[in-house]
Nucleic acid binder design. Structure first.
Length: 593
DNA sequence: GATTTCACGTA
DNA sequence: CGTACGTGAAATCC
């Protein structure tokens, strides 16, 4: 909007600094935002802070004028921005990039600072109750620090715990210094990424993971459209109408229990919620089981009617305890949005996670996920993403050829001389670490047919077993090495093997998560102008909420964004990735579902 | 009261 | 004796 007044007009020195920043593509701008205090921005040329009055407007002006890559310390800033109505295009989240580089989920500013500066992490100063020793340290620090006892850094070079714990937002001057430190750390992280020559995609991953952090903040704030009436109808189908009081709830529960207990041995009090008591009950009825998991019980369904009753009870109990009326009251807002907290990276293999049941909602509730009036969903899910990712990251040309069709398992089955189902089990087993069972023959043939891919998996498993850190294709560190200073724990063979399976899976699952997130943030960026919003990410599935008139256009974009994501993630790869995409009214309307 | 175990939902 | 996560209830451990 030329001629419109911008907050930047009031701050010419800041405008000049940003102008220089704009000359650099992807220019980093440090941000420290505490709306009740003020805002600070920093470029490589200097830092600037102003009070609370216009903090959010200033950020919006800079976004419009420069569209910088906003450098923030943690995801909390992204949430603060979204809650203030600020949706920015690009980010560099220091915590997110730290996790990528160093592994683990622990990425407080103190840790991030220390890692970036090569300071030992086991030397991190601690906040908390003062004992004689720590107060002596503080006195010493203040004395040595001389002119700046109030600054962010101790004499040892570490961030002061008080700053890291939130003291950075105590004043505009502190915000200013905090934003300047952010820029410094971002520069060091970029150097570390550039030095990682064996993982050329790592810098890309850092950018997309940072954008995923912005997306997660938006999904956390926006929520998932859900029709309360439909949801309550589904719940009622399992556990009856909403109980009017505690007594009614208890009565309904007793009634559900009774439907199972009528098959139980008489004169015996069985708590169906206690696996031990259920196991004992089954034993009395002549059914001996190692555990009472659903899968095991299903094989016994024909032996006694109590089993079917128990399985139905479990299903209802899951709804009653986890996805019932209380869940709706807690997570479904009056605006018809189901909300949980989204995290862009789970700390292990790098998948997104969501709380509030958003990632493990029973499929029966999907009909309640309904697009709002005048809107549709574009639902898209990646087909057979893990074996395709394996083909790409391992560089196995034979496996890459198998990805060219819509169904990867058909050509694999043909090549192995087995049926499709056996081929699928073998491929999945190889990625999950299955070593026993009757898949041994298929596994051997798999190794013969796709030696490069199999060697890639074996190497990952070996590293993990030996306690060596892994890096995914996109550069994410998956930690297996014992923490510095800690001695390797004594482990039995089972634990070592379990770690091997984890490592084997992590390089595939983690790389798939990277590709998925690049896809998601590309969709976020490319479809925003249509009014489209990603409202759910489910590992290989995207749900986009979009005005009805743009449904088809958004669907086409989701498809082209996948191509773009693949090109950016693995330039020149011969592997083909496919997505099923549909324009639907409710989440349950997915084709084939 | 905090942690672990079991179970089950999603991928 | 294939993976990951989040959640709730019971069991267990202070």
């Amino acid at each position: 909007m030329p001629g419109a007044h911008s907050e930047l007009d009031d701050h010419p020195e800041l405008a000049a600094a940003l102008e220089r920043c704009r000359a650099v593509p992807g220019g980093l701008v440090g941000l420290a935002l505490e709306p009740s205090v003020g805002v600070a921005v920093a470029t490589a040329h200097g830092s600037f802070a102003t009070g609370a009055e216009d903090s959010c407007r200033l950020v919006a002006s800079i976004e419009q004028a420069v569209r910088p890559r906003w450098v923030t310390w943690t995801s909390a800033t992204a949430l603060t921005m979204v809650r203030a109505g600020l949706r920015v295009a690009r980010g560099w989240n220091l915590a997110t990039v730290h996790c990528l580089l160093a592994g683990g989920a622990d990425a407080g500013p103190d840790r991030v600072w220390a890692q970036a500066h090569g300071l030992a992490l086991d030397g991190l100063p601690r906040a908390g109750p003062r004992d004689l020793f720590s107060s002596w340290q503080d006195d010493e620090a203040d004395r040595v620090d001389g002119p700046d006892p109030d600054g962010p850094l101790g004499p040892d070079g570490y961030l002061r715990p008080e700053w890291a714990a939130g003291g950075w937002r105590a004043s505009t001057e502190r915000l200013r210094r905090w934003s300047a430190l952010a820029i410094e750390v971002a520069g060091l992280q970029q150097l570390a990424l550039a030095a990682m020559t064996s993982r050329p995609a790592a810098a890309m991953t850092a950018r997309s993971e940072s954008a995923a952090e912005l997306l997660c903040a938006e999904m956390t704030v926006d929520g998932l459209p859900m029709a309360r009436a439909v949801a309550e109808r589904v719940v009622a189908g399992f556990i009856g109408p909403r109980p009017s009081d505690d007594a009614a709830a208890a009565a309904a529960r007793a009634e559900r229990d009774a439907a199972v207990l009528r098959f139980a041995p008489p004169g015996r009090d069985v708590d169906l919620r206690s696996p031990a008591q259920v196991k004992e009950m089954l034993h009395v009825l002549g059914l001996d089981v190692a555990d009472t998991r659903t899968g095991r019980l299903r094989t016994l369904e024909h032996r006694h009617p109590v089993v079917a009753a128990l399985l139905a009870w479990r299903r209802a109990e899951r709804i009653a305890t986890t996805f019932g009326y209380e869940w709706l009251d807690e997570h479904l807002g009056p605006d018809g949005r189901l909300r949980g907290t989204w995290t862009s990276c789970d700390g292990a293999a790098g998948r997104m996670t969501a709380s509030g049941g958003l990632h493990n909602m029973p499929a029966e509730l999907r009909p309640a996920v309904v697009a709002e009036p005048g809107h549709v969903f574009v639902r898209a899910d990646l087909g057979q993403i893990e074996p395709r990712v394996l083909a790409a990251v391992s560089g196995d040309e034979a496996l890459a050829r198998a990805t060219l069709g819509g169904d990867l398992y058909a050509p694999v089955a043909e090549r192995l001389g087995i049926d499709r189902q056996a081929a699928k089990v073998a491929v999945l087993g190889a990625m999950y670490g299955q070593t026993s069972g009757n898949g041994a023959i298929a596994l051997r043939r798999l190794t013969g047919a796709y030696p490069v891919a199999m060697a890639y998996l074996d190497r990952a498993a070996r590293f993990a077993e030996q306690g060596r850190d892994l890096r995914t294709y996109g550069g994410r560190c998956v930690r297996f090495a014992p923490a510095p200073g800690a001695e390797a724990a004594v482990e039995d063979r089972r634990a070592v093997a379990a770690r091997g399976r984890y490592g084997r899976n992590a390089v595939v699952q983690g790389a798939a998560a990277e590709l998925f997130k690049i896809w998601a943030v590309t969709v976020r960026e490319r479809s925003a102008h249509l009014g489209a919003r990603i409202v759910l990410c489910l590992h290989d599935e995207l749900l986009v909420h979009v005005p009805s008139e743009h449904g088809d256009a958004a669907a086409r974009l989701v498809s082209s964004c996948l191509d773009e994501a693949v090109r950016r993630w693995a330039p020149g790869t011969a592997v083909r990735f496919v997505a099923e995409i549909g324009v639907i009214a409710t989440w349950a309307d997915a084709k084939g579902a």
